[in-house]
Design a protein around this nucleic acid. Structure first.
Length: 902
RNA sequence: GGGCGAGUAGCUCAGUUGGUUAGAGCGCCUGCCUUACACGCAGGAUGUCGGGGGUUCGAGUCCCUCCUCGCCCACCA
C-alpha cells in the first residue's frame, strides 16, 4: 500500500490559512446558519427553537480578545444545539454606542483642530455614520474570521430604521403608562462629554481627598462666633443656601433659625435643622448646596430653599440660574479644581480655614472619559424603574431565569431591590432623538411615535427635544426589536421569542442584562431568556484587563492569522472555568495559544494517519459489525466513546428548563465548556491516538476481515470525535470530516456543521468489564515501559518480557503480540527463566510482569546506584528520628528499622 | 461602609454529596527524529491543599477564627 503519495496531500502540520476562509464560504453558501421561522415548533414546525441574541459590539473600534472569548462561547453553544437538531438562531448585531462613539469622533475632530460645533449637528452625524459603517463592517468581518455561525440575514444595528422604530414605540408606551417623566433634579453630569449620565455610567472609585473645615460667621453673634462646616468640595460653597445641623444636636440646637454669612459670596444663609445630618461626622454641620449635591437637593426640597447653579456645563465657575452674583468676578471662568485651590487660599488668608485633614472617599467618574462627574441640577427624562423591576426580580427568584455563575444572582437581586429611576436623556448628537416635540406657541408637549410638524392643539410650530436617548435605551430592547417588535405578529417574534441563553460579561449585568429582562416583561410580558451566562474577563499575565489603550491587548485576527481560528477557540474554551478570568500573554502568543494549536495539529495527524491507512474507499458501518468480530481494543474504544459522549453531555447540561422554570437540581448545571472540551480532548488524544490508533497498526495493513473491522471502528470513533469537537474547532473538524471514508454513518450529510450530535450506543451490558480487561493490557504496556525507563534500557534494544498470570492467562496470551508491539519487547506468557536478576511489576489483577535484565543492564553499576540511594535514605532517616526525639517522641521504632535493614 | 468570591505543583486552574497513593494543561528534568504528529513519543520530579483552632474513625472538602488578594454595590458632607 503506497501511503507516501497520500500523505503528501496533507502536510504534517495543519495550515489554517488555506482552509478556513473557503470552508466558511461554503457554509454561508449552503445557508446552514440561517434559521427558519416555519421550522420552529412555536410556529407549527418540527424543531425546538434555540436562540441566542449576540451582545452587539460597540461600533467604536475593531474587536479585541474579550469579544473573541464572548463570541466563541456563543458559537460553541449555538453549534452544539444546531447539531442536536434544534432550529438554532444566533442574531448578530452592532451597537451605535452613543456617548462612546461621539467621543471618538470628537477626538478625531480635535486632532484636526476642530470641535463638533464647527461642523454643526447634521454634518457631525453624517461624519459619524461614515465612521461606524467602516468599523461596523470590520467587526462583522472579524466575527466571520473566528467562525461565528450567526444568521447574517438578520444582522441588526441599534440605530437602524427598524430598531429606531422600536425605540420610539418603547418610549411612547412607557410614557403613556406613566413610566417615563421629565424631572428637575440633580443628576450626574460629565463636564467633558457635556451630558448627563445614569447612575451606572457614573462609576465610583475610592480616592484620597481632603476634608476642609471652614468657618461660617454667625450673623449677629456678639463674639464673632462662627459655625464650622466640613466639606470635601469647597468650590461648591458659593452655591450654599443654608447650613444644616441635626435637630437633636445639643451643640447647635439654639442656633437653629439664625443665619450665617457665607464667605466669599457674602450671602446670608439660614441655619436649618434636618435629620439627614449625622452629628458624629465632621463638625456635625453640613453646608447645603442643592444644585450641586443630590442629598442637598433633597434637603433643599424639604426646606423650600433656592437652588443656585454656580458652574457652567463645562465645569468652570459661572453664575447660573438663581445664582445672582454669588461667584465673584475673579473666579468666573475658572475650572472647578482651580477654583477650589483659590477659594482655599482665600479662606486661609481670611483665617476662615480652620482645619485640613486627609479623607478617604469615593468619587464618581464618567465611564467613558474618566472625568470626575459633577452633580448638577438639570431637566432630564427618567424611567420609573420600581414597577419594571418587580417582574425582573421575581423571574430570578422563582427560577424562570438563572444566572451562571450562581453568585451573580445575589448581586442582581440586590441591585434591583435598590433600584433608582433611570436618567435616559443625553445631551449628545449621536443617538436616537427623544420623540418629544414642544410647541413654541402654546407650550404643549407632544410625545409621538411619528415625527410631528405642527402642534396638534394650536397648529403652531414645534421643535423636537434636542437630546438623544441613553444608548442602553436601544440595547435593552435588543431581544425583542431584533425579532420584529413592535410588530407583535412578526413571524420571528412568534418563532424565536423568548430566546434561550444570554452570554456576556458581568460588567454589563446592570447596564444591559437586567434592563433587557425588564423590557422583556414590560413589552412582551415574558422573560427574554432563561439563562444568563456571565463569563470572565481576558487579562494579561499580570492580571491586568486587556485593553487597547494600555497596549496589552491581543488582536484576534493576529491569532487567527498565526495559529488559526480553531487554535484560538480551543485555547479560550479549554482555559476558561465557569465565570473565571482568562489569562493570556500578549507578549507570547506562541505560548498562550499553544494548547489550541498543538491540539489542532494532533487532530490533523490522526486524520493523516487515517487517510493514509484506512484510505478513502468505503468502510463498513459499526452498526452492522457483529460483536464477535470486534477485538477487545475495539470494544474498549467504543466504550470510551460512549463514556465521552456522556461526559460531554453532562458538562454541556440541559439546554433549557424542562418545565417553564428551572428545577433546583438542574438550575446550576451545564455550560461547563472547559469540562466538555477536556473530555473531548482526553478521548481524542489519550484514548484514540495514544492507544487505539496504535493498536490498529498491525491490523489495518493485514489481509482478511479484521482489517475491515479496524478500518470501520477507527473511522467511526474519529468521525464521532470530530462531531464532539466541531462546536469548539469548527474549521479543522469540518476539513477532516469532509475527507473521511464513507458511508461512515447513516445520516451522512453535506456538512459536519449540521451532522447529528453523537448519541451513546452501548453494545453490551458488561461494557465496564470489557473495558477493565483492556485497561489491564494497557497497564501491562505501561509497566514494561516503566521498567525500560527505570533501568535505562534504550528504546532500540529488544527486551524479553514474561507475564505470569493465574486469573487472566488467556487475555495475556491473546494480546501478547499487541503488548509486545506497544512496549517494544518480546512477550511470553507463563514463560520460565526469570532468574534472580530481573525486574518485577505486579498488575492490578495480581499478574506479574517480569523482565530478565541479563545482558540489558550493567548490574554492578545498577547495584552501586542503589547502594548510594540507600545511604541517602539512611541519612534522612537518622535526621528524622533525631527530630522526633527532640520533639519528645520516645518510640524507638526508627532505630529498630535501621537495625533491621542492616 | 455593605455584600460576594478566591487563596491547591513554578504559572493558569479542576477537585461533585467528607473516604483508598490530591489531578489537568503549560513550564521543568531524562531519554528518544519509533515511517500520523519533535506543535511529537516514553518516563520523571514538584504540593505542611493561606495560617491557627474545632467536629469526625477519617477533612482540600464541614464549623469557628485570623491573614492576603480580587470583584460588585454605596447620597455621610
Amino acid at each position: 500500500m503506497s501511503t507516501t503519495q497520500e500523505l503528501h496531500d496533507l502536510p504534517a502540520q495543519y495550515d489554517p490559512g488555506q482552509t478556513e476562509r473557503a470552508i466558511y464560504e461554503r457554509w454561508i453558501d449552503a445557508g446552514i446558519f440561517s434559521a427558519d421561522e416555519k421550522r420552529s415548533r412555536r410556529n407549527g414546525g418540527d424543531r425546538d427553537p434555540f436562540v441566542i441574541i449576540m451582545p452587539p459590539p460597540n461600533v467604536t473600534a475593531a474587536l479585541h480578545m474579550g469579544h473573541g472569548l464572548n463570541n466563541t462561547v456563543q458559537d460553541v453553544i449555538i453549534r452544539w444545539r444546531r447539531m442536536v437538531g434544534d432550529e438554532a438562531l444566533w442574531v448578530p448585531g452592532t451597537d451605535h454606542a452613543g456617548i462612546a462613539t461621539q467621543n471618538i469622533i470628537e477626538k478625531q475632530l480635535a486632532a484636526e483642530g476642530k470641535t463638533k460645533f464647527d461642523l454643526g449637528r447634521a454634518a457631525f452625524v453624517e461624519r459619524t455614520i461614515e465612521f461606524v459603517e467602516e468599523t461596523g463592517g470590520e467587526i462583522l468581518r472579524q466575527l466571520r474570521a473566528i467562525g461565528v455561525s450567526a444568521d447574517w440575514n438578520r444582522t441588526a444595528y441599534t440605530l437602524s430604521p427598524e430598531l429606531s422604530r422600536a425605540v420610539r414605540e418603547a418610549f411612547v408606551q412607557l410614557y403613556e403608562r406613566g413610566l417615563i417623566y421629565r424631572g428637575h433634579r440633580v443628576i450626574h453630569w460629565c463636564p467633558r462629554c457635556l451630558t448627563s449620565l445614569s447612575d451606572e455610567e457614573a462609576q465610583h472609585s475610592e480616592a484620597m481627598g481632603t476634608l476642609y473645615h471652614i468657618a461660617y460667621p454667625i450673623v449677629g453673634a456678639k463674639d464673632n462666633a462662627s459655625l464650622t462646616v466640613a466639606t470635601t468640595r469647597p468650590e461648591t460653597m458659593l452655591g450654599d443656601v443654608a447650613v444644616a445641623v441635626h435637630p437633636e444636636d445639643d451643640r447647635y440646637k439654639k442656633l437653629i433659625g439664625k443665619s450665617v454669612l457665607l464667605p466669599i459670596a457674602n450671602v446670608e444663609i439660614p441655619i436649618i435643622a434636618d435629620a439627614y445630618v449625622d452629628p458624629a461626622f465632621g463638625t456635625g454641620v453640613v453646608k447645603i448646596t442643592p444644585a450641586h449635591d443630590p442629598n442637598d437637593f433633597e434637603v433643599g426640597l424639604r426646606h423650600k430653599l433656592p437652588m443656585p447653579v454656580i458652574m457652567a456645563p463645562d465645569g468652570t465657575m459661572a453664575n447660573g440660574a438663581d445664582a445672582g452674583s454669588r461667584v465673584p468676578a475673579e473666579l468666573l471662568g475658572a475650572d472647578r479644581f482651580e477654583a477650589r485651590e483659590r477659594i482655599i487660599r482665600s479662606l486661609e488668608q481670611s483665617r476662615q480655614l480652620i482645619k485640613v485633614e486627609p479623607h478617604q472617599h469615593a468619587i464618581r467618574h464618567c465611564y467613558r472619559c474618566d472625568t470626575v462627574v459633577e452633580p448638577r441640577l438639570s431637566d432630564q427624562w427618567f424611567v420609573k424603574m420600581t414597577p419594571l423591576a418587580e417582574p425582573a426580580l421575581k423571574a430570578v427568584r422563582d427560577g424562570t431565569i438563572r444566572i451562571l455563575p450562581e453568585r451573580w444572582e445575589a448581586v442582581y437581586i440586590n441591585w434591583l431591590e435598590n433600584i433608582r429611576d433611570w436618567n435616559i436623556s443625553r445631551q449628545l448628537w449621536w443617538g436616537h432623538r427623544i420623540p418629544v416635540w414642544y410647541c413654541d406657541k402654546c407650550d404643549k408637549q407632544i410625545v409621538s411615535r411619528t415625527d410631528v410638524t405642527a402642534c396638534d392643539k394650536c397648529g403652531g410650530p414645534v421643535r423636537q427635544d434636542e437630546d438623544v436617548l441613553d444608548t442602553w435605551f436601544s440595547s435593552w430592547l435588543f431581544p425583542i426589536s431584533t425579532l420584529g417588535w413592535p410588530d407583535k405578529d412578526a413571524a420571528a417574534l412568534a418563532a424565536f421569542y423568548p430566546t434561550d441563553d444570554l452570554i456576556t460579561a458581568p460588567e454589563i449585568l446592570f447596564f444591559w442584562v437586567s434592563r433587557m429582562i425588564m423590557a422583556g416583561y414590560a413589552f412582551m410580558d415574558a422573560a427574554p431568556f432563561h439563562t444568563v451566562y456571565l463569563h470572565g474577563t481576558v487579562r494579561d499575565t499580570n492580571h491586568v484587563k486587556m485593553s487597547k489603550s494600555l497596549g496589552n491587548g491581543i488582536d484576534p485576527l493576529d491569532v487567527v492569522a498565526k495559529y488559526g481560528a480553531d487554535a484560538l477557540r480551543y485555547t479560550v474554551i479549554a482555559g476558561m472555568g465557569m465565570g473565571a478570568d482568562l489569562m493570556l500573554d500578549p507578549l507570547n502568543l506562541e505560548r498562550s495559544f499553544a494548547p489550541g494549536r498543538n491540539f489542532a495539529t494532533k487532530l490533523w495527524n490522526i486524520g493523516r494517519f487515517l487517510l493514509a491507512n484506512v484510505g478513502t474507499s468505503p468502510v463498513r458501518s459499526v452498526d452492522e459489525l457483529r460483536d464477535n468480530e470486534l477485538t477487545l481494543a475495539d470494544r474498549w474504544i467504543l466504550g470510551r466513546l460512549n463514556a465521552t459522549i456522556l461526559e460531554a453531555d453532562a458538562a454541556l447540561g440541559p439546554a433549557r428548563p424542562e418545565k417553564r422554570k428551572w428545577r433546583p437540581e438542574e438550575r446550576y448545571s451545564g455550560l461547563r465548556l472547559s469540562e466538555y472540551a477536556e473530555a473531548a480532548r482526553r478521548f481524542v488524544w489519550n484514548d484514540v491516538a495514544d492507544w487505539f490508533l496504535e493498536s490498529t497498526k498491525g491490523r489495518i495493513g493485514a489481509s482478511g476481515g479484521d482489517s475491515e473491522v479496524a478500518r470501520a471502528v477507527l473511522t467511526h470513533v474519529f468521525d464521532y470525535a470530530l462531531r464532539l469537537l466541531h462546536p469548539i474547532m469548527p474549521f479543522i473538524t469540518e476539513t477532516l470530516w469532509q475527507r473521511l471514508p464513507f458511508p461512515v454513518a447513516t445520516d451522512r450529510c453535506e456538512f459536519l456543521a449540521i451532522a447529528s450530535w453523537p448519541i451513546p450506543h452501548p453494545r453490551s451490558k458488561n461494557e465496564g468489564d470489557e473495558m477493565a480487561r483492556f485497561d489491564l493490557v494497557r497497564e501491562t504496556v505501561s509497566a514494561v515501559r516503566q521498567i525500560r525507563s527505570d533501568y535505562a534500557i534504550s528504546p532500540g534494544k529488544s527486551m524479553d518480557v514474561i507475564i505470569q498470570s493465574r486469573a487472566n492467562r488467556a487475555l495475556f496470551t491473546e494480546h501478547a503480540s499487541l503488548i509486545g508491539r506497544l512496549s517494544r519487547s518480546a512477550v511470553k506468557v507463563d514463560g520460565q527463566g526469570a532468574g534472580a536478576a530481573a525486574a518485577h511489576s505486579v498488575l492490578a489483577d495480581g499478574s506479574e510482569v517480569i523482565v530478565p535484565l541479563g545482558g540489558l543492564v550493567d548490574l554492578t553499576k545498577e547495584c552501586r546506584k542503589l547502594r548510594t540511594e540507600l545511604e541517602q535514605l539512611e541519612v534522612q532517616l537518622e535526621a528524622l528520628s533525631k527530630r522526633l526525639r527532640n520533639e519528645g517522641f520516645t518510640s524507638r521504632a526508627p532505630a529498630n528499622v535501621v537495625a533491621a535493614e542492616r
